[in-house]
Design a protein around this nucleic acid. Structure first.
Length: 940
DNA sequence: GAGTTCACG
DNA sequence: GACGTACGTGAACTCA
């Protein structure tokens, strides 16, 4: 029967429950692994008391409603909405998903919607229920919900057990529910950062609304207000008041993918509920509920005293012989069912290659419990003739027919797709961007995910790399089967679809098994390392964003490149002949060793320094010095530039143009750079030439599709701004606020030159010092960069520190922190370990400079990550007319319909400039410059 | 596979 | 007093 008269809906404000539980209880942790669970315990207690209290009540429908995502449509109206809200406590964050699971364990509908607050969902459901003639009780004491009261809707403050009806609302606001938003719009709300009218509180607001009847009436007739100050405030702040009303007005048209009938009250399944409580190790609650349900309480083992080896002591040994080969749909369905029973599953895909844009899916492995994993072969080749051992593993004469014993690809994917896309099933993987991109090409949108590589990166950046083999050896003391044993290496390498299925099962299922074990180890460790927020807000959400960018690719014009290649080849041939002529003999210009011999032995030029392998150094700086005396070094420098441009760019980029898309698809590594920066590979699109005129022309080959333009947005001086903030240099901060030329200003301060008498050379020197500071300046380094004597460079640095003592303090404090903790942190809490900081000898010098640089470079990296993560939602309104393509550390490149360029620039600029908030409030502004054009050369 | 060189921020 | 040095990356090339 459809929801209607006689039905009674309870709507529980989940977030309110959680925060109340969190603050009411001490920071309890789960005994076995230290996972914080205090809030979950309190939450479960509150749910249980709620259920018990319902005995004999008329409730027929119920749901717990949660907030989801920190960015809602209200932030699009007003970016400071809830901006002064404290970040979620580090030990509460990992408990949020557990409160969802708890709700489900109680068999109560659990609802949330990305981009909306719980209040909006509650409002929508209340409206629907009221319209259907039913009754509603909102279990919350949040005054923002009071506007919903009336016409069968009541609120219940569960703590005080007090009902709030129309009269209760009047008591609180001085108006009835239909005018509550008017009062709130005037009074504002400091908690949610709703501005309202300055100087007007709830009392005055109610007075005015009751006098004029409504907010609109009041604003229209504001001139009639007798008190001069009040009148002026209302007239001057009209826009702000109207915005405030929009902010507090709850949305009754939230697009929900469920109806009231889905919220019917159901009895909990004792096994599921007690299973969850036992998993959380809630002993008292488990006993209480099992008594109430008249079933036996499940045993909760007392955790053993921590042993020497904390690496999953009870987990079964990793034994590749025990893995299952899934070869029919019934077996596959059984594994899918196990995922549903668990709520999570480790997933790994096997493919024909490393390039996700080209590689084909060969099989999928799954793991639900340590030691229990399977492999689902899908497109292994070799047909009937294939028998392990009877055939050379790396044989070239392969049989292209499908091997027997495999589920047809389409059928297997159709079976897996609902589970892989199910929001209630967490998919766990190692480097999930790879698997997500592969599966996307088969129409599967992998979500939600957890990624062990990114967990390791969040906890251990700077300590080691984060590949699966490294992690397995380090944290599980297990060396996984090397892929080389299956596919060989070098020229005789075969693709994974040629690997015999039996062999593939052992390898592939083991990967899923190892991944699951790593996840079980890492997940509860995140909070102890205080990086849950880093992982959840700056690592994991980047995966789908980057996957989309990489799949989009950028259009590269082959003709432009190939013409340039030919031109470079010609010029190089000419230069080579001249070089041989000048040298008096033919030699390989590309060989630094041979060039060194020619320059310093045969021509016996000065300044030859031998490196550690006894070879002369012939780097650009050396040749640059020699070029003043001789012609040959200049020719070599020119030749080298052309050689670089040709081999690395104009030749190589053509090879990277995808046959199907006609575009170049890079791959970003999220966990590559220790500081939090991304790295771009295959090809690297973060080092396309721009500094030299010749090189910049390569960017003319990066073009927009017909009817579109490329738009580039880049942060201006972001690292110097961060330095000014973290070191607290008032003069620098003020200069940034005033929009001054920061290098000229530095020069002026240092050399006592008035700004209007600044010479380019003095400014250039100051610029070098500013950059040097970010890099952990040294007299030697600055001297080499500026080509001045070392003593002079040291003099500059001394004067700089004298003028900006805060910088010196920052550097000393940072090094001291690193020495004590073996790590540094960004403003957003990203941890970068500095294991060499206390080393002896020159290594500590490197480590010190890296420690000074990491918080600055890392904070800048965090900010653009945050911008990128918010960008898809921000530009969703453009409906695909703008696509984010590339990131180059402080620049984002978009491809945009000609007609939508201005709109995109406005949106993206705002997102980028506001990306630090609300977690960090920089006291320098972030400024983003925009450019556009047919090619990247024009846009930049 | 190490070392050198050079492209970028 | 001597070490050795700007920070962070990836790719191509030579040469053992």
């Amino acid at each position: 029967m459809a929801f209607g008269k006689g039905h009674h809906l309870h709507l529980i404000d989940g977030s309110a429950f959680i925060f109340r539980a969190y603050h009411a209880l001490p920071p309890l942790t789960r005994k076995s692994d230290g996972l914080p669970i205090g809030a979950v315990a309190g939450f479960c207690n509150m749910l249980q008391r709620y259920v018990e209290g319902n005995n004999g009540s008329d409730v027929t429908h119920v749901a717990v409603i949660f907030d989801k995502g920190s960015h809602t449509f209200r932030n699009d109206m007003y970016d400071l909405y809830k901006a002064n809200r404290e970040a979620m406590p580090e030990d509460l964050r990992p408990q949020m998903p557990l409160t969802r699971r708890a709700t489900e364990a109680f068999n109560i509908a659990c609802k949330e919607l990305e981009g909306y607050e719980a209040d909006d969902i509650i409002a929508t459901l209340s409206c629907q229920a009221r319209a259907a003639g039913g009754q509603v009780t909102i279990i919350s004491s949040d005054k923002d919900l009071m506007q919903l009261v009336g016409g069968g809707v009541e609120m219940l403050d569960a703590m005080k057990n007090r009902r709030i009806d129309r009269d209760g609302v009047f008591e609180k606001f001085g108006v009835f529910p239909d005018r509550v938003v008017d009062v709130q719009a005037l009074a504002g709300d400091s908690v949610d950062n709703v501005p309202g009218a300055p100087g007007i509180g709830i009392k005055t607001a109610a007075l005015l609304i009751n006098e004029f009847g409504s907010l609109e009436e009041l604003l229209d007739r504001a001139e009639e207000i007798k008190q001069p100050k009040r009148r002026q405030t209302l007239i001057e702040n009209r826009d702000q008041i109207e915005l405030s009303k929009k902010l507090v007005q709850l949305d009754c048209d939230t697009p929900l993918d469920f109806g009231l009938d889905d919220l019917e009250v159901k009895d909990p399944d004792p096994e599921v509920l007690l299973g969850f409580l036992a998993e959380m190790e809630f002993r008292t609650l488990t006993k209480r509920i099992s008594d109430a349900l008249h079933v036996e309480a499940p045993a909760i083992p007392e955790p053993e005293v921590q042993q020497g080896d904390a690496n999953a002591p009870d987990a079964p040994k990793i034994d590749p012989e025990k893995y299952e080969c899934v070869s029919d749909l019934a077996a596959l369905d059984a594994w899918i069912a196990r995922a549903y029973a668990r709520g999570w599953i480790a997933v790994d895909t096997e493919t024909t290659g490393l390039n996700e844009m080209i590689a084909d899916l060969v099989g999928v492995s799954l793991c639900v419990e340590a030691g229990e994993a399977c492999y689902i072969p899908l497109t292994h080749r070799g047909g009937a003739a294939q028998k392990e051992g009877t055939e050379d593993l790396f044989s070239e004469k392969a049989d292209d027919s499908l091997a027997p014993g495999q589920i047809p690809l389409e059928a297997a994917l159709a079976a897996l797709k609902p589970m892989l896309e199910d929001p209630s099933i967490l998919k766990i993987g190692q480097n999930m961007k790879y698997d997500a991109k592969i599966l996307a090409r088969y129409g599967i949108n992998l979500a939600p995910i957890d990624d062990t590589m990114l967990m390791s990166y969040a906890m251990h950046a700077g300590e080691h790399t984060h590949g699966m083999d490294t992690l397995s050896e380090r944290y599980l003391s297990h060396t996984p089967i090397p892929i080389k044993e299956l596919i060989g290496s070098g020229k005789s390498q075969i693709t994974f679809d040629r690997v015999p299925i039996e062999t593939a099962v052992r390898y592939a299922a083991e990967d899923a098994d190892v991944t699951l074990r790593l996840w079980q180890l890492f997940k509860p460790q995140l909070h102890g390392a205080k990086v849950t927020r880093v992982y959840e807000t700056m690592e994991r959400p980047l995966v789908p964003v980057l996957a989309k960018m990489e799949m989009a690719g950028i259009k590269v014009d082959r003709q432009t490149l190939s013409r340039m290649s030919s031109a470079f080849a010609q010029k190089m041939a000419g230069l080579e002949a001249e070089i041989h002529e000048l040298a008096g003999e033919k030699f390989n210009v590309g060989s630094p060793a041979q060039l060194g011999e020619i320059l310093f032995e045969k021509m016996s030029l000065e300044g030859g320094k031998r490196g550690k392998n006894g070879k002369y150094s012939t780097g650009a700086d050396v040749l640059e010095d020699l070029a003043t005396e001789h012609d040959l070094p200049r020719r070599v420098l020119d030749w080298r530039q052309l050689s670089k441009l040709k081999s690395t760019y104009t030749d190589a980029l053509q090879e990277h143009i995808n046959k199907d898309t006609g575009r170049v698809h890079t791959s970003y590594s999220i966990a590559g750079a220790n500081t939090g920066r991304l790295a771009s590979t295959d090809p690297n699109l973060q080092n396309i030439p721009v500094r030299s005129e010749e090189g910049r022309r390569i960017r003319e080959a990066f073009v927009a599709e017909e009817g579109k333009v490329l738009v580039s947005l880049d942060y201006s001086q972001i690292e110097l701004r961060i330095l000014a903030h973290v070191a607290g240099i008032e003069a620098l901060k003020q200069a940034f606020r005033d929009g001054q030329d920061i290098h000229a200003m530095t020069a002026s301060e240092m050399f006592n030159v008035p700004m209007d008498e600044m010479t380019p050379d003095v400014r250039r020197q100051a610029k070098a010092i500013n950059f040097g500071v970010i890099y952990g300046i040294s007299g030697f380094g600055l001297a080499r960069n500026l080509r001045i004597p070392r003593a002079e460079a040291q003099g500059f640095i001394d004067r700089y520190f004298e003028r900006f003592p805060g910088i010196k303090t920052y550097m000393d404090d940072t090094i001291a922190f690193a020495k004590e903790h073996d790590r540094v942190e960004t403003l957003f809490g990203r941890v970068i370990h500095t294991p060499e900081i206390n080393a002896k000898g020159p290594r500590s010098g490197f480590a010190k400079r890296a420690a000074i640089n990491a918080p600055i470079q890392g904070t800048a990296a965090d900010i653009i990550r945050r911008a990128m993560i918010r960008m898809p939602a921000a530009i969703a309104g453009l409906e695909g007319r703008a696509v984010m393509l590339l990131q180059v550390h402080d620049e984002l490149l978009f491809e945009v319909d000609e007609g939508s360029v201005d709109q995109l620039i406005a949106i993206a600029k705002e997102v980028m400039e506001g990306a630090a908030a609300p977690v960090v409030h920089l006291d320098v502004p972030l400024i983003v410059d925009a450019g556009q054009g047919r090619s990247w050369a024009e846009a930049h």
